[in-house]
Amino acid sequence: MDFVERVTRTQFLGAEFLTWLWYQEEMGAGAFELGGDLGAVELSFEDKLTMGSTALDEQQDSFKGGRPTASPEARAALALGKQAQSASLRLTQGEQEWRFTLKAEPLMVSAVRLPEVLADDPKAQFHERMLLLETLDRLYRALFKLFLEERLSAEWTTEHLPAVQAWAARRGPQG
């Protein structure tokens, strides 16, 4: 299998990752321990969510306003086997907060709103913005690594997947 085939064939991991984040947010109140200098972060799903499944049909469901992940409509889509294709998220680390959209295919962040920049000088402002952007990049990659560690483990099918499926089967929001 060549490189392009591998890239194409594993694109589904983006939607699985985003849906796994949703599951983790509900089960663990959005708290993640990323270790090292990244430490603890909190993640929450915000007011935009798109769900779809190429396996079932081409139809996508878009939710906007309020908290879509808590809505019966989004839960019904989940129960139909659809997965999150894009979602607006808020990620908090200490005093700093990033808002962005995470897209599944290709896996990427967009519409990034950085935490407040404190520098006055334009050049220093640029460097601070890039540092904040690179911190977001490290945070979301660390979350992706947490997902992959579960997803690529031998316990995925015996422990993790049944737990995710049990969560997805519940029609109402948690709590």
Binding site: E16, T19, V164, Q165
Partner: peptide, 16 residues
């Protein structure tokens, strides 16, 4: 494992 990974439905067949 990444090279061999296959999609898994996040819903069991009975619920679907």
């Amino acid at each position: 494992a990444l090279d061999a990974v296959e999609p898994t439905p996040f819903i069991d067949s009975e619920t679907l």
